[in-house]
């Protein structure tokens, strides 16, 4: 584990930390961006992740981590402003545009992001990806929802149970 450091001793440059993905790729990123993760924040506050040490993230692969960091880097300045009373409407619109673009991705990537955001406790990202999936579900029947999300077809037991509940609600199945 990373040994505590007193700081990088360089007040001019932003402090950097290193994150190591499950497939052993190292990512160097500003501490402020990585600290959007509640999970990493304490380690970073304790001085971890600097120098040659790096913080290992055994549950996040490099493709997912690079995507996660793209989000963190973009959102770090606004977060550093403490939610930014001085953020302009233009800044907010730009972040919103970024967010919309950001979740316009393959479903498997989306799932990886959900898990990573959950494990790393990055609140904004959790909310963003969860909203995306919720939008995919809107207006769909239970079967359509299963297909959209890639669930396997229901087993006969599951099917029977669904039918029973449906009768209870008095609705057509699809």
């Amino acid at each position: 584990m990373a040994a505590p450091e007193s700081g990088d001793g360089n007040n001019g440059a932003a402090r950097m930390v290193t994150l190591i993905s499950s497939d052993n790729t190292r990512f160097e990123v500003e501490a402020a961006a990585a600290s959007l993760s509640q999970t990493l924040q304490l380690t970073i506050l304790d001085g971890g992740g600097g120098g040659g040490d790096g913080i290992p993230l055994p549950n996040v692969d490099s493709a997912t981590l690079s995507k996660v960091l793209e989000y963190c880097i973009k959102h770090a300045p606004a977060a550093a402003n403490g939610g930014a009373p001085n953020a302009t409407a233009v800044d907010r619109a730009e972040l919103e545009r970024f967010d919309n673009e950001f979740v316009n991705i393959d479903q498997s990537v989306l799932y990886s992001l959900i898990m990573a955001a959950h494990n790393l406790e990055i609140e904004g990202l959790q909310s963003l990806v969860a909203k995306k999936v919720a939008d995919m579900i809107k207006g769909k029947s239970p079967m359509e929802i299963r297909r959209t999300l890639g669930f396997p077809d229901p087993t006969p037991e599951e099917q029977a149970e669904m039918n029973a509940h449906m009768l209870e609600y008095g609705w057509a199945y699809e």
Binding site: Y111, I114, A130, P152
Partner: peptide, 12 residues
């Protein structure tokens, strides 16, 4: 679409 990872169902 790919099936969601099973943990997804529990956590997120």
């Amino acid at each position: 679409p790919p099936p969601p990872p099973p943990e997804l169902m529990e956590d997120a």
